[in-house]
Design a protein around this nucleic acid. Sequence first.
DNA 1: CTGTTAGCGCCTTCAT
DNA 2: ATGAAGGCGCTAACAG
Lengths: 333, 333
Amino acid sequence: MAKRATQNDVAKLAGTSTAVVSYVINNGSRPVAPETRKRVLEAIKQTGYRPNNAARALLTGKGTTFGVVVPDLANPFLAHMLQSIEDEFYDHGYSLLVADSHDCLKREEDIIETMMSQQVAGLVWYSVDQPPPAHLLKDFARPVVFANACTPTDTGEVAGQRISVLEDERGSAAELTRELKKRGCRTIGHLGGPRGRINSAERSRGWFDALDDGSDGNPEDHPHHLSAPYTYEGGWQMAEHFVNLGCDGVVVSNEMQAVGLMARLASLGVRIPDDISVVAMHITAHAEYCVPALSGIHVDMADLSAQIATSLLGSGAAATIVPTTYFVERASC
Amino acid sequence: MAKRATQNDVAKLAGTSTAVVSYVINNGSRPVAPETRKRVLEAIKQTGYRPNNAARALLTGKGTTFGVVVPDLANPFLAHMLQSIEDEFYDHGYSLLVADSHDCLKREEDIIETMMSQQVAGLVWYSVDQPPPAHLLKDFARPVVFANACTPTDTGEVAGQRISVLEDERGSAAELTRELKKRGCRTIGHLGGPRGRINSAERSRGWFDALDDGSDGNPEDHPHHLSAPYTYEGGWQMAEHFVNLGCDGVVVSNEMQAVGLMARLASLGVRIPDDISVVAMHITAHAEYCVPALSGIHVDMADLSAQIATSLLGSGAAATIVPTTYFVERASC
DNA sequence: CTGTTAGCGCCTTCAT
DNA sequence: ATGAAGGCGCTAACAG
């Protein structure tokens, strides 16, 4: 095992000191004579030297790595988000530590702890529950983005900057409902996520707002409201219920659910959109290739990740991020 | 910014030395008096101490992080693979550094370099091209899994252990083709990945084997062979060509392509499987919820990641991994 | 402009 | 069973 070359090796070969090598690497931190720089670069090439990030992180207390925590890597929306964020951070020379909480609070806790241990320079946290257990971040003196905040997260007194992504999920769900109404749907149901989650509740509330059918109280208690996990299977299971309820339109809170629901409707011989229209929150490229193509709310992910990167890397600018979203009409409604 | 507690703080509070704290953490590296251990654990809790992984990595030269490199995080197959690997490594207390090469060689190179800089303890590498540019790993004295090796990767003399995932893609593609024949398909086309990639060529070869129509030469030159990127769009674009070629069956080399292809066929009014049957390589949970449900080759991902983790963590056991695959029949054929 | 030096937090001999 | 001390590779002072 050929040991990896160190700054020392390079310095020796270039006939200079390790400090100068450091200056050359961190291009521009200190002026270096062009001739010396050249010798150093040559020596680096010769030895195949690569800086040791662990050492740098130890010294500066700040790694070149950001952490990303999501509840389900196999969810196309989150996969897309991850990809987009990775892209952005790659451009800035940072790496990503990625973890999947599997929608489990206990595991999420563990992951956050580990990330802190790993000296990440910051965190993107798509939390399982809302509001996120921000106390886990106590004296984590690095910026954190709450990727699914919905509502400003009260983080109290903390060490590092805290940024919330404030998407108007309620407004979007209402918009979807109105789009269905506009197309003549009379009985519009809603498929929400697991009960008790605040972001799911926001979407239910939006649907309820636009329904405006005179009913009152908790949207989740409305007869046309159903709940399921954010999975294909979840949507599949609920499809028949909507048919039985006599719905001619469904607002689905998640793309995976919508795909499962449409597949089941097809197998039941229910026509989309003739018999039932379907629209969904947070659709991805996948939606365009459903049969029929799925309509719904799109998030401008490139824009969102750019904003996330900016706040995480920049000097503590905006404390909230508002994603750009828009309704995309396709054949499903 | 409350500075994070160090071993020193813990030692002081427990009235002992940092060495003992270290012993306690690395449970069992050295015997510690039960009573002392208790005091130390108490002090850890009090101070909120968390080991600094950067320091550990610097000292031992080996981090608690593994790298994963894939060409497209938004590809459901790869997303599933990533999730499965993450799961496995989480269980063993390791974190994952994830990067997306975007199917770009230049970027892949860069990523590999970065990962080495980050002192990863090993690498899972789903390479853009085949064979992978293994020279990038020169004197990387850690285990590496070539996740899409197809054929044993000749790595010459290297520092660390090199493991190849040898899936019989050729055999699987042939199996798919035979399944279509069995169902009465007469003119079976193949949609391959980008030309020139060896793993795509393997699949084409398998289709060609089973076609057995007396034609000769390079499968990619067969009139019923088409190529497209591994995307939804790629499949969509090619659908009409297969219709024009008079195909009544298509073996698709990738799930995303298959989804795009089926969507386009539906929009053309072509019935699946009555007019054309479709089968695909490397399908995921998604396939079950296509309309119609997509048939194809499934990879036992839990098994695969377990094997990957074992070889990466274990003491240099198997140098090759053979994934378990099986054909799943659904409505698309 | 360049060299010297002092640690960052941790683990691992070597003593005790 | 425990403590003291050295050093992993690097950067940030501080000299020159």
